[in-house]
Amino acid sequence: MIVDRRPLNFWERLYLPAIIGGLKVTVRHAFDTLFRHKVVTMEYPEQKWTVPVNYRGAPYLVKDQEGSTKCVSCQLCEFVCPPKAIRITPPAASKLVADRPNAEKMPLEFEINMLRCIFCGFCQEVCPEEAIFLQKDYSLTGLSRKELVYNKEKLLALGGTEGGIQKWKNKLEEAKSQENFPVKV
């Protein structure tokens, strides 16, 4: 294809109108930035992205509506975790009982190494108790490697509460009612 190259007219050859046009554009942008706050920069620590609902951030442990730990130390998440970031110490010898009625166990210690975690969400997917969720934090910082191994206390504090089913809540009544079956007259 032959491009039609129109010869420049006198003003175009002089460059000056184009230069003045350019100066006007830059001044307009500077004016917008200074006086009309049309800034494209997001000043990060103060302003943050609002992440989408399905965002996969850091996994934290959650509590139920009544403020008790949901995790029952089944260690499925530890097993499924691809980078082996989760490390659970079961209660075993310590005889630690769960802080809610009817649950058998709760972990003595639950650690997630946030430097290893790849935010894949397998732990959330595999958890039978809905006790661990990938939440919206994406900038985890620390001054040492040790600082980024989050323990149970920290994970629970960061996780907040997540309602949903309370599997163990009416277990006792259910068991009793089952024992009472068939209903004796």
């Binding site: 830059t26 942008h29 500077a30 930035t33 200074l34 049309k38 800034v39 494209v40 920069t41 000043e43």
Partner: peptide
Amino acid sequence: KISAWIQNRVGPN
């Protein structure tokens, strides 16, 4: 700073 303003940025702050 001026380059930042012209490009709708903030500049060193």
